[in-house]
Every structure is written in C-alpha cells, then in structure tokens.
Design a protein around this nucleic acid. Structure first.
Lengths: 257, 257
DNA sequence: GTACTCTGTATCCGAGGGACACAGTTTTGA
DNA sequence: TCAAAACTGTGTCCCTCGGATACAGAGTAC
C-alpha cells in the first residue's frame, strides 16, 4: 500500500502509460484489455462521476469479477489515470494555415470539449501526477505553435499552463447538459437577492445578465488570454528584432504598485 | 441519503453557510462549534489531504465520538463545504489607492495564497456547489474593482472566473513546500528525454529552463490576463469616449509593454 | 506429458460513512 | 418543585468499497 501521492504505484503506472504492450508468454490468454477496461470506466464515470466509479461496477460491465481487474490495473487510482489518458486522446491536428493564435484558439476549444464531455476529468487532474503520452502530445502542440514567436521556453510552457487551466476551469462551469442560461448565475442571483446592500457590485453585475444569451466565459477568457500573449509577442518583436532568445525583457506585472 | 449533487443536503448546507447562528433553547449546551469543527477539519486536511480527512479523525482531534459531529454537520460533504468557506475566509481589503489593475493583481495573489495554503481546496471546489458568504464576498471585490471600467456585468463576472481559475490552477502546480526548481518540469524533462523526436518542441522548450529560477507561471499568466483585460477596457473607452467620470485615467508609467 | 506460469475466482478483512436507539442534561411549563 | 419536552453525546450496527490472499483452471515450454 504505497501511500505515495495518494496511493498510486508510480512504477507500475509508468509502465501502463508508457510501456509497450508486451504480449505474455504462458498461461491462459487474457479476456480483457487495458483499453477495454479504461473504456468501461469512462462510460461509468461519464454517467455517474468518479464517485460512481467502483471496481465492482467496472467489473460487472465487463462480465468479470472485481478482482479480475487487479490482474491488469494495480488499483483504482491507476485505473483513473488510464481513463484520463484515454479520455483526452490524441491531440487534434492543428487547423491548416493557421498562425499561432489560430492554433492555440482551436487547441483550447478542443481541450475544453474533451473536459466537458468527461466532467470527472477535472477531479482526476488535481494534484501532481504522471502525464501520459497523449497528455504530453497535447502539450507539444502548444509549444510547437509558439515556437518562433520569440517567447522563451518557460514562457511557452506558462502559456500552455494558462490555456489548460482555462479550458479545464470553464468546462467545470459549463455543465454538460445544463439548462441554458446558466444555473450558476441563477444561483448567484438567488443568493444576492435580498442581500443587495452586502453585495452591491455583484447585484449590479448580475442585473446585466440576459438569461437567453449563452454563457460566453470560454470565449471571453480565451480572447483576453490570447490578447495578452499577442501583446507580449509583438512587444518582444519590436524590442528585439533579431536573434530571439537573448536577455528577455521581463516585465512582470508583479507586486508593487 | 440524498444523492443530489454528490450527496449534499442543499437545504441544510444553505442554513449552515448562510443562516444565523440561532442559539438552541433546551437541552445540554453543545460542547462544539461549527467553527471549531471546521478548523479541526482544515488542520487535518492541510496535513493529509481530503483523503486523510475522516469523521473519525476530526472527532478524535476534538475529543468527541464520531457520531457527535453529525449533530452539527449533516455529513462529510457539508463539512468540507464549511471548511472551504472558513479556509478562504474574508477577502482582504483592496490596496489603498490602487486602480482596477492593481486591485485585481493583489486579489488574485491573495486568493492564490489561500489555495496554496490549503491544497485540498482545489479538489473541494470541483463541480457546481453552493457558495458561501465569504466566497461571494471575494467575488464582490472583483466586480467592484471593475465597476466603471466600461465592462458589462457578464464581462466583469467572466474576468472573475478567469482570475479565480488562474489562481486555483497555479496553486495546484506550485506544491506548498516542494523542492525549488519545480518537480513538474523535472518530471516532464525526464519523460521527454529519450523521446526527443516525438516531442521536439517540448524538448526545445524544456532546454530553456533554469532550475534555479523560481516558477513564474503565476506572474506570467496574471500579467497576460490583465494585459488582455486592459486592452479590452481601453478599446471600449476609445469607442465610447463620453461617460464623464467613468473610466479612470490609469497610466502610471511604463507598465507591461 | 509434466512442470511452470498466468488468469479469473472466492473468500476475507479493514476502513469509512452513516442510521438508530438510548441515556444524560438542560429548559420550559404547571 | 416537579414532570415533560427537547436537545446532546454515545454505543452499536450495517453497508459499501478497496484491496490482500489463496486457489483452481488454462495454456505454454521443455
């Protein structure tokens, strides 16, 4: 029982995620596949969330005993990791002829879509964890799109972190099949109503909400982020017209006023 | 056993979060307080995460039986909600004399700090949930800071969502007491090493990482976001030049660009 | 054919959330 | 003053779930 990082067997998980599917030699041939198990788990978690995902249910849906799963997967935590890797899947091809901004825009929306289709994915990605090949491939796409923009390596990764966070965060806000108009704003409105003097600005902001217009938080945030990145890129290009990667003009919007 | 939203009793939770502390009439006076229970839970969760948080341990740390807690809290889920509300606490006062950007910058860093101090808070905030007074008060601060900038109500809320997401996301990346240099990048590097042809851009980006420089993802993302918001605000102001005392003339020298 | 190895199963255990009934305590009403 | 009512903390019980272990059957290598 390795309590390491929430009970995840790092070695075995690494083999499962990154190892080659080595065919066994002797003994009866397995009736299951890692992919099939992950698929079954995804189906269950999509329907009832991570709480509804029990080894028993996964086993039942595959017509095996619960303990049979442990021949393939060390435990529940590793199963979730495999499900996550399968659920994100391979990154989509970048749109043809798009510049870095077009690529990042499309990339974020595609990732958002993945997260929205699998609401449990958010909970499955909290805390440090071992990324799988698909996850790294998604990351590779962002960094590749930003290559040649003048951003440093760390900055490219920071942009990726920013976009992943936004996609993941917004997918959580937008329930997969929620009533249009956003139940979240409705809940806020109900709470603020009767407490206007306590939350005056919030009250005013909520008055400007049209229940018919769909939630545009994804578009809005994405546009702001990409505007900010674009501003940095153009500033870099103007400041250092030659040899990218020199002494960076760090202008942290940090601390001091 | 209300399976509603993960087993949360919405009515009772609303009373716990928003209700007035009505003193009971008859019977022995309670030995515990909601605040004390929440504090005990926070202490445990800070140390061992949400998985380490059991009713048993909370009860032990308060010298009561497990079932005694159920006199105060309907169940574990509601306890976590109370812990969250106590952990975020009241929002800090906005820095004196700061414009909207300064306020939002400070706000985001303070929120980041709260999340970083309580790593379980991220997991506790997945999915739709009932916000408490403190949570709404934090939100109120953002919207108040943006009042008069020309942004619409929904846009102000979208900015808040964006900033909350960034603070929360980055707090997860930055482990509370991790080794400097970022184990995350180190893990990436170890994975990419030997697979350079598969992740060429990632490989190149990782080469530009200096293990000594601290992680600047929070600063970077925050600066990008606020740059993007600022661009929108100035564009709005330029398009609608009237509105006498609305948009303040913020230009304290060379910020950003 | 025999030994070895791998798969799926049956059984068992402990941890954890929570229901329920009961005893003790404090206030209210007569 | 005293009994009834209401509320608190406790002990006990149950169920679910993750996982360990031992075992029986299946398939392969020698």
């Amino acid at each position: 029982m390795t309590v390491e990082t929430g009970g995840v067997d790092q070695r075995r998980l690494f083999e499962l995620l990154w190892g080659t599917p080595t065919g066994p030699r002797r003994g009866p041939r397995p009736t299951l596949t890692l992919a099939a198990i992950a698929r079954a788990g995804i189906t269950i978690a999509d329907a009832d969330g991570l709480d509804g995902l029990t080894m028993q249910r996964v086993a039942e849906s595959l017509d095996v005993t619960k303990m049979a799963l442990y021949r393939y997967v060390p435990g529940r935590a590793e199963l979730v990791a495999l499900m996550l890797e399968a659920a994100v899947g391979e990154p989509p091809a970048p749109p043809a002829g798009a510049d870095w901004r077009g690529r990042l825009d499309d990339w974020t929306r595609q990732l958002f879509d993945r997260f929205r289709r699998h609401p449990w994915a958010h909970a499955a990605t909290v805390g440090p964890r071992l990324p799988g090949p698909n996850e790294l491939a998604w990351l590779e796409r962002v960094v590749a799109a930003l290559a040649g923009t003048g951003l440093t390596g760390p900055e490219q990764l920071d942009v990726a972190v920013l976009l992943v966070g936004h996609a993941r965060n917004l997918a959580q806000h937008a329930a997969p099949d929620d009533a249009p108009g956003g139940s979240r704003e409705a809940a806020f409105d109900a709470l603020v109503r009767g407490r206007e003097e306590r939350f005056p600005a919030l009250h005013a902001a909520l008055r400007g909400i049209d229940p018919n217009t769909p939630d545009q938080a994804l578009d809005f945030g994405l546009a702001r982020i990409l505007d900010g990145v674009e501003a940095l890129i153009t500033a870099r290009a103007a400041a250092v017209p030659r040899h990218p990667g020199g002494v960076d003009e760090r202008s942290p919007g940090g601390r001091g006023e």
